[in-house]
C-alpha cells in the first residue's frame, strides 16, 4: 500500500508539476526559436510518449514499474540508459556504507544512552546529552568536510575520498577488505557524529521512564547488583521505544548517505542523487527517490519484525 502511494506520488511529482523534459534534452535556445528545433521537439515528445493522455501514461508507468523498468535517464552517459541499470551497481556500495554506519551508530548510541539514562542528571549524563545534541545539530556536509580538512589534509592520517586505494587490485583479498574499511572510516565517523543522538537520547528517555517502575524497585529489593538490574529488568523494556524511533531514523539515513557519498566521492546512490539534481535528470532522480523510499519501507518492516522478536508480550502471543 505504502509502496503504491509512493510510486503514485513519484509519478505525479514528475508529470504534473511544471517543467518540460524536452527542454533538458534539447540544446538551449533550440527548443522554440528555430524551425528545426520545434520539429525536433515534437518528435521527442512523441518518442517519449509525452503526447499521450495522463491516465495512459500512469497505467504505462505502473506496468513498467512492475517489470522493474524505471524508465530511461535523459542525461546520464549521453542519455538513453535505463534508470534501473544506472541504479543497480551503485546500490551495493550504498548498502555497505549505510550498513557499516548504522551498526556503528546503533552500538555507540546504545552504549551512551545506557550510561546517561542510568546516571541521569549527573555530569556524565549532561555531557553525553549535550555532545550528542550538538552532533545532531551539525550539518553532515560540514562535519565531513571539516574531518577531511583536519584528518586527511592538515594531518594526513586518513584517505580523503574514494572506497579503495589506487593500487588496490594488486593487494591480496584480506588487505583489500582492510583497505576498504580504512577508506570507510571517516564517512562512518561523520555518520556516527551526526546520528548517534537518535539512539542515545531515545534510550536515555525510555530508561528514565522505566526506572521509577515498581519492578525496578523489586529488582533492587531482592538484592540484584546495578548491572543485573540494568541488564535483566531495565534494558529489555527500554530498548523497545528505540526500535520504534528507528522508523524516523531510516529516513535520515538516506539524507546522510547522499551528502556523505558526494563529499567523500563514494560511487553510490547518494552521489547519483547529487548528479541527477545538478543536471535536472528527473527520471533518474525519481527512480533514486523510489528506490530510497522502498529501502526505508523495507528497513521499517525489518524493525517491526525485530520488535516482535524482542517484545516478550508479542512473542508469546
Amino acid at each position: 500500500m505504502t509502496v503504491f502511494l509512493i510510486a503514485t506520488l513519484n509519478f505525479f511529482i514528475v508529470q504534473v508539476l511544471p517543467g518540460d523534459p524536452t527542454r533538458v534534452l534539447l540544446p538551449r535556445g533550440s527548443s522554440n526559436v528555430t524551425q528545426g528545433g520545434s520539429d525536433l521537439r515534437a518528435q521527442l515528445t512523441r518518442q517519449w510518449g509525452l503526447d499521450q493522455p495522463i491516465t495512459t501514461r500512469y497505467v504505462l508507468y505502473f506496468a513498467n514499474l512492475l517489470q522493474g523498468n524505471l524508465g530511461t535517464t535523459i542525461t546520464y552517459q549521453k542519455g538513453g540508459m535505463p534508470v534501473a541499470g544506472v541504479i543497480a551497481p551503485r546500490l551495493s556500495t550504498t548498502l555497505v556504507l549505510v550498513g557499516l554506519a548504522t551498526a556503528a551508530t546503533m552500538w555507540l548510541g546504545l552504549v551512551l544512552g545506557r550510561i546517561s539514562g542510568w546516571r541521569r542528571g549527573r555530569p556524565v549524563d549532561v555531557s553525553i546529552t549535550m555532545a550528542t545534541l550538538i552532533g545532531y545539530s551539525m550539518p553532515s556536509f560540514w562535519v565531513s568536510l571539516m574531518l577531511i580538512y583536519s584528518l586527511a589534509f592538515v594531518v594526513p592520517v586518513f584517505p580523503a575520498f574514494g572506497v579503495q586505494s589506487r593500487n588496490a587490485a594488486t593487494f591480496d583479498p584480506l588487505t583489500q577488505v582492510l583497505d576498504q574499511l580504512y577508506h570507510y572510516f571517516l564517512p562512518v565517523v561523520t555518520f556516527v557524529i551526526t546520528n548517534v543522538a537518535w539512539f542515545s537520547l531515545t534510550l536515555r528517555n525510555s530508561l528514565t521512564d522505566t526506572l521509577p517502575e515498581d519492578y525496578m524497585l523489586t529488582a533492587m529489593a531482592k538484592g540484584l547488583t546495578e548491572r543485573q538490574q540494568l541488564r535483566k529488568h531495565a534494558m529489555p523494556n527500554a530498548r523497545l521505544p528505540v526500535l520504534t524511533a528507528s522508523a524516523l531514523y531510516f529516513g535520515w539515513v538516506v539524507s546522510g548517505a547522499i551528502v556523505i557519498e558526494e563529499v567523500f566521492n563514494i560511487p553510490g546512490l547518494g552521489q547519483l542523487t547529487w548528479d541527477a539534481t545538478r543536471v535536472r535528470d528527473f527520471p533518474l532522480l525519481s527512480g533514486v527517490f523510489l528506490v530510497a523510499t522502498l529501502g526505508v519501507v523495507v528497513a521499517n518492516a525489518i524493525a517491526d519484525l525485530l520488535y516482535m522478536y524482542l517484545d516478550p508480550r508479542v512473542r508469546e502471543a
Partner: peptide, 19 residues
C-alpha cells in the same frame, strides 16, 4: 505516516529542482 517516513532530503531536492 507516509510523509513522516519518506526520506526528506531527496524529496525536497526533487520539489525545488522542479519548481
Amino acid at each position: 505516516d507516509f510523509f513522516l517516513v519518506i526520506p526528506w532530503l531527496p524529496f525536497v531536492l526533487i520539489l525545488v529542482a522542479i519548481l
